[in-house]
Structure formats: C-alpha cells, structure tokens
Design a binder for these strands. Structure first.
Lengths: 351, 351
DNA sequence: AGCTGGCACTCGTCTTTAGGGAGTGCTAAA
DNA sequence: TTTAGCACTCCCTAAAGACGAGTGCCAGCT
C-alpha cells in the first residue's frame, strides 16, 4: 500500500501546504505557520501530531529539535506524484517559447536555442541532448583526402546537421577515387537511417562481396569506418549553469564543484538522461534518486522529445530540489513538444 | 623614472622574496618571515622600514594593522616584469605536451587538446582561441539544397576543419546546379585564404560580371553569402573552469558567478584575448589590469600562437592573481609554440 | 647614516558565555 | 479527537575576554 493511501486526506493536504510553503520560503515550516496557511482550521498542536506521523513515515524531517519541518526526498516524491496542482504556462512564456523555437528562425541551432530558453525562463540550468544518431537520416556523404591514408569524412544528416570524422584507410586514395566512392554511397544509402546504413554495410561486406567491383568494395569499407559504432558520441547542450550558483542550497563550494565537474565530464549526465529516453512524458529525479552523488541537492525535470512519433532525445531542467515543480513540469513538457515539432522534417520542408 | 629604478637592489630583492613567499603560502608576509627567507641578514625592524617604503610606493599593502604585507597589482607587475626568474618546464610536463599536441594524434581537435592540456597541467583554466579565419586556407566547398531557397554550405579549411552555414539564395537551385557551382568555386578558389576569397568575390562581382555566364555568377554570389563577414564568429575553447572553484581567493560566490557568466557570454573574453593577438610572445594581465570587473581577482597569462610566422590565435591560462607565474609563463610560451607547430600544414602533409 | 632591539599598541581570531526566540513533545483537560 | 499549556531543546547572535601575530616608533649601537 502506498503512502498516499495510508494517509488520510487531511495529512496529505497538510503535506502539500508544507511543501508548497517550503518551496516558496526555503525555511523549515513550523506548526503555527502551517495552521494558518492551510484552510483546515486546526490548532498548531494538532498539526504537530500530524507532523509526527509524517516524520515517522519519512516524508518530512526536522533539521533539529526546535525547527520546523522540511520535506524529505520521499516527501517531495509524494508531493510531485500525487499532490501537485500544475500551473499552466503564462502566455508571455509560451509566446517566448514559440518564438524561440520557430522553424523559420534561420539559425540551425534549434537544440542550443531550446537549452537557452529552458535556462532563461526557469532561471536554472537547461539541458538538451542531441537527437539520437540511430534515428537520423543520412543525407549526403563526402570524402576528402588528407595526408597519406587519412581521409576526412563529412556527412550531413536530417536536412542540415553536419558531422565530420577522420578515418584511416588501408591504402592511399586519390581525390577522384574518393569522389567516386562518395557518389556510390550517396546513390544507395542516401535517405536511410544511420543505423540502417551501418547494418547494411556489414551485411554487404559479409554476403555480397563477389558481386562488387573494387571501387564499390572500397566505398563500403570506408562507410564502415565512417559510421563506426564509437562514432555515436552522445552529447548534450547545457546552458545556464551559472544560474545554479545563485541558490543558497548549492552554495557549498565543494558540492558545487562536484556538480560542475559532473557537467563537464558529461558521461554521468548522459547516462542519467538516457534513462529518461525510455519513458514518454515528463520524468523527475529528486535529489539522491538520480543515483549520482553530485546531484544530491538537485532535482532534474526531464521529458523526452519525439520526431514523427519516435523518441529521439531528452531535454530538461536542473535546479535545486527546492524548485517550483508546478511551474517547471508543464514548462519542460511544452518545450519538449515544441522542440519535437521544430525538428520535424515535414515542417522544415513544406511541400 | 620607473619604480624598479627608484628602488635599490635590496628593496627589490625583498619585494621579490615577499611576492614569492606570498604566492606559495597565500598568507600576508610578516617582517620576521621575510628576514629569515631573504638571505640578506637583516633584522625584522629593518625590513619593516623597507616595507613602509614599498607601501608608500603602492607595491605592497597591509590588510590590517597587525598583518604582514601582500603584493598589490603594481607589486605583482613589477615582480613579473623585472624580478621574475622563470623556471624551465619539467621534462614530464614537456613530454606530456608533446604527446598531447602531436600531429599524428588522429583526433582533429588540436585546439581542444591544447586547452585541456593547459588546464590539466596548470590546475587552472585553459583557454585557446580558434585560429583566425582570415588566415585560414579554403580547401573545399560544397553546397546542399535544403527547403526552398535555403542552401547548406559546407567548407573545409586548413586540411581538416569543417565549417557549415545555412544561406538563403534569391532563387531555388537544383542539386545539379549547386554541384556545378561548387565545382567552379573549388577550381578557382581552393588553396587561397578565406580573406583573399572574400575580396576576390567582391571584385569579380564588381568588375568581371560581363565575362561570366549565369552559372558562374550564381556561384560567386553564393560564395559571397557563404563567406559573409559576420561568418567569422570568433570563438574560443575554455576548459578547467571548475579548477577555479578550488581557490580560496575566488571562493566568494558572487564574484565567481560573475566570472563564470563572463565566460559564457564570451564577448568580453574575446575582446581581451584579441588584444593579446597584437603582441608576440607572452602577455600578462594582472587583476584589474584587464579592465573587466569580473577578472578582478584573476590573472591571465597569454601568448599568441602562429602558423608560418603569422599570428593566428591566442592561448592562455586563467587563474587567481596569486599564481606561480615563474612556472606558468614558460608553460604558456611552450604550449603556444607547440600548438603553432601542430597546426602548421607543412607538418600535417609531409612530402 | 643606517641598522637593530625593545616596547607599546592595534587588530583579527578563537572561545566562552549569556540571552532570546522559535518550535517542539508531552500531558491533561475539553 | 482536538486543544491549551508548559517545560525543554537547540540554534543564533552578540558581547566579552584571551591570545597571537605583526606593526610603528624610538632610542641606542655600529
């Protein structure tokens, strides 16, 4: 039986007001305040009894004997899952989002724009993962000879994203040979997803070698190098980290340093965000729930975003556990939907 | 008459030991310590007299009545300009640099590598500007049609750097037309510097229009859009910011926030670094000398780096004013030279 | 004239102490 | 079951005192 079911209506109501109050004030909430804040008309003494129950359940916690109560992680969790009344976005914010993520913006960096909007409007840190490579279409590929056996591969995906990589070939190719190889690859693989291309390449090398001439074989081998697995270096755009320095609960320098180091090492954050990719809709990690020491005092509100009904990435907001969830949640939700729409190829190439 | 000339040998010697001592300890230096530290065999009382003089000249400063002396910005300046005895790099560091900036490294991100080396080995923040576009050679250009009149331009410079930009053309081009235009541009502009290309394009449009057919004209017009002035968004790679959070003199959260915000806004830093481009060799900004509030408590040790005897960029180290200049200066110097060498096209394409 | 020892003084830091305030837990009564 | 009352705990702040480091200055020494 969940805690929400154990507790009666009144206790839940009180927990809700407590969390709301704590989020807005940042101070432990005492029984007197709670008695006035809730419209239950209960005396402080009664409230204290309820608080003792909530504390037994591990939903609130007293920093010391004569302080009010502060929500624990479980308390926040219950609040977020069952008690929260989300506030709709203000029209000003909504229009700012629409404007910032409009397709005709010209600048190609929609991902960066989304991240900036998240951090700017929430005054916390915004993060957006780059769209998954696997679900990304190959548009065009190009080879350029560098020195010796080094070849620069440039490929374009998804209408306008340019990637490049240096590969080492087994022999030296001339510019013309490389051009020919690129032409071949473009003619057969263009328009297919990177993942599909990767699989097709392997298959061809295994099964169809006899059917191919040397030029085709070279081309396919180069494609294999170019789309090598390790190529999919997942990455994300993080902005507004500095906003986090303003929060008193993160003002411990050591803690903050850990957090920022986690940001620049990336892989921890990537792993965390990857988990959110599995679920649709908004997901929340509160404090230690993330499993990463560095995020101890932080919450992460994320949502996956989709292009053509396929989840391709995750975006979210990072801030102190004490954040205005009722505003942030719809905010992240809407941003994810708008970003998905902005990335949709149908809308970037209207008929 | 400069301060170094006003002061006698002994005072300078004492200032030097004071600064060295303060840099290593971080504590105000008292007369007793100074008397033992310097090999002048003077009593503390004598030292105190000298200190009073130095204080009058604004070279040192006492945080309060009964504290030792701390160097002022002028004090550091004098120290750095005239008193410093630079230490040669340790062989371990040197080999680390060589290894990290070796040309055959395979990864194309030499700039990033340089920045990371700077921050890793100095335990402060490392910054490297991207090489100036003007002095960069065009290697290859490519156009890809997007929707309507939008065209994706991809161009490769300096052997392996890939840039891309979206331009809006006046009419819709087919893939074949774009291919043709790219071929034309590659044939005549490849190998020339971006700056030269930009000028040539303008000249052709003004003078040689009648000589050109429509295809050539379109190509040149697109080139103009592609190499538009605003294209040269100067940028830099900054790493190891988190290292700065460890220094007690930067532990004031507001100050640190300002600093980090300056980092992410970039333009201030860019302007500062641009100034260093004019001079060859190592330049140093101590504290407020930079003219930027946010860098108040920081010093910046920079050096320009050159390719083929032409200054193309700047790199440096950012840390607290109290840093080990005698180590950092040669460090920055060597890194700049090695980076220049690594970028030199001659060494990337051995005959 | 320049250097040195001595001495009074200043100031920051650390610790102790005391007082006030906020809020609790418990108990007994409504 | 709720409420009022009361003793108690603990944090926070300010004030006071002791301590130590280091100075400035003066008078004497070389």
């Amino acid at each position: 039986m969940s805690k929400a079911q154990i507790l009666n209506e009144r206790s839940l109501q009180l927990l809700k007001t407590l969390v709301e109050r704590y989020i807005s004030d940042g101070q432990p909430v005492g029984s007197r305040v709670l008695s006035k804040d809730s419209d239950l008309n209960l005396s402080p003494a009664t409230i204290r009894n309820v608080m003792a129950d909530l504390e037994d359940l591990g939903l609130v916690h007293s920093p010391h004997t004569s302080a009010g109560r502060v929500p624990t992680v479980s308390g926040y969790r219950l609040f977020v899952d069952s008690l929260l009344t989300v506030k709709p976005l203000e029209s000003k914010e909504l229009s700012r989002l629409h404007q910032g993520l409009s397709v005709n913006d010209g600048s190609s960096d929609v991902i960066g724009a989304a991240s900036r909007l998240l951090s700017e409007l929430t005054q916390m840190a915004g993060v957006v993962t780059l769209p998954r490579r696997e679900l990304v279409c190959l548009r065009h590929i190009e080879f350029l000879p560098l020195s010796h056996t080094r070849v620069l591969v440039i490929f374009v995906t998804n209408e306008q994203e340019v990637h490049n990589k240096i590969i080492h070939t087994s022999k030296t190719f001339s510019a013309a040979e490389l051009q020919q190889a690129a032409n071949y690859l473009n003619s057969i693989y263009s328009g297919r997803s990177l993942d599909a291309v990767r699989k097709a390449v392997v298959k061809e090398l295994q099964e169809d070698q006899e059917r191919m001439n040397q030029g085709m074989l070279d081309a396919v081998k180069m494609a294999q190098l170019a789309f090598d697995q390790d190529n999919k270096k997942d990455d994300y755009v993080l902005t507004g980290e500095t906003n986090l320095m303003g929060f008193s609960e993160l003002s411990d320098m050591d803690r903050l340093k850990n957090l920022f180091e986690a940001f620049s090492q990336k892989q921890g954050v990537i792993h965390l965000l990857d988990q959110c990719m599995k679920a649709e809709g908004v997901q929340i990690f509160i404090g230690e729930e993330s499993g990463y020491q560095a995020f101890d005092q932080c919450s992460l509100v994320t949502s996956s975003y989709s292009v053509s009904d396929e989840v391709v990435g995750v975006l979210g907001v990072i801030g102190p556990t004490r954040m205005a969830y009722e505003k942030i949640i719809p905010f992240v939700d809407v941003t994810a939907k708008l970003l998905g729409a902005a990335l949709n190829p149908k809308s970037t190439t209207p008929s």
